[in-house]
Nucleic acid binder design. Structure first.
Lengths: 228, 228
DNA sequence: TGCCGCAATTGATCCAGATCAAGATTCGGA
DNA sequence: TCCGAATCTTGATCTGGATCAATTGCGGCA
């Protein structure tokens, strides 16, 4: 079983902070455990604090009229969520659910804000973390607004972290990836197929994708979609 | 002619910071003037620093394949742009153009980052400013992804700042508002008309809109769209 | 090993909003 | 005041992706 310390040490957001700040964070954190499928919080609830994922997977999503969902973010080990609401002190703007059994470290909101006020390096670290998050959001927006289905998928594949063998692993259900890209799973499936048939990618085993022709993928991202 | 001090004093982002920090910012700032239609910077250029608008209007937008544009943000007096890139130290992720003759204060990037490193209260202020910006972006994303044309316009009108007489002023060209909501100006025009015909809003003079039935508008935002 | 249930694929249609194409207004400048 | 250019409106058509509807595939479990 992971400890709070281990979880925090693996978190990107906190890698750049000095040992002393780290100690203080670790001291205030507590473990939070969630079953597969369990809701962590719902849109508009008070923000409990900053969550750091140690193990498992969480999806953060907005729900619209008629129950339609849009996945804002899929967080795996080392990632954080609810930082923004904790920082700004407002209600959480989206819902979070554990996609599989998940273990998190929770930095309670009040403690966290206090630490920020007293700890300048931590503050700086958070600033650069946040600015990355904004960049990511702008990228997402760009995706949804300026690219077609093939472009979004291509962009997603090129941006995704590659495993050692050069393949990218799709996180959990394809359905969630589709929603993240604002596509239905049907369209995702069809477009994915077209990319395979065109020889741009091929599937390895079990949710793994091999990128065969990165340059051609890149041109799709730019909006040059290949004829059928 | 506005001075740097006056511009900074009117800026929301810097209202919460102590006098001393303010002085230091003012000392490093310089004025930047732009003609109507002038480009301020283009996507992927180095970030010159943080711009604070004192007078005029700036639109920040992304350009996609085939020259399609999407307006991320329209900034008027008191607003800032390029903060995120300045903070994170990366290239600007979008282009900026002066929609009308515009006067800005520019806080050069290197100075600004230095100030952040040494000035804790400033840092805290920026953090909460940034968290608001993230919230705004998430709202935009929600808009584009979960709402139809009528819902987006209704939401925009309800969120927009009201003038003293309860009317909202559309910033400059309708075309830019449409692009901000990811609509063509044709669709914007048509949908706007439907809202007027349904008696939810009415037009005052010169780009001013009166909200007649806020509750009904709100229900449209939720996704209940009124029959023709 | 065979069944059950969820996910993924595939096919057929539908629709909101884009695009194309004219007019109608508005506004700045001489 | 009038003119020209740009914006805005309105109408007709087109289309990417959504929706509806079966199948197919796969992983866990008794």
């Amino acid at each position: 079983m992971l400890s709070v310390i281990e979880i925090l040490a693996d978190c990107r957001l906190f890698t750049a902070i000095p040992a002393k700040s780290f100690q203080r964070l670790a001291a205030m954190a507590r473990l939070a455990k969630f079953r597969k499928g369990q809701m962590i919080f719902r849109e508009n609830e008070d923000c409990p604090g900053v969550y750091v994922v140690g193990k498992g997977m969480v999806r953060v999503f907005k729900t619209g009229a008629g129950g339609k969902e849009h996945v804002l973010h899929i967080i795996e080990a080392g990632g954080t969520f609810a930082e923004v609401a904790a920082l700004g002190g407002f209600k959480v703007p989206a819902s979070a659910e554990a996609v599989e059994a998940t273990l998190c470290a929770l930095l309670p909101q009040a403690f966290f804000r206090k630490a920020l006020e007293e700890d300048h390096p931590l503050c700086l670290g958070m600033l650069s973390g946040l600015s990355l998050w904004v960049k990511h959001l702008v990228g997402l927006l760009e995706d949804v607004v300026l690219r077609d289905a093939a472009g979004r998928i291509a962009n997603y594949l090129l941006d995704a972290p590659r495993a050692a063998d050069g393949e990218v692993a799709l996180p959990s259900l394809k359905r969630y990836v589709a929603s993240h890209l604002n596509l239905t799973s049907e369209t995702f499936s069809r477009t994915f197929r077209r990319l395979i048939d065109a020889g741009l990618i091929s599937i390895g085993k079990k949710n793994h994708v091999r990128i065969v022709a990165p340059e051609r993928l890149r041109s799709i991202v730019q909006g040059i979609l290949p004829k059928e």
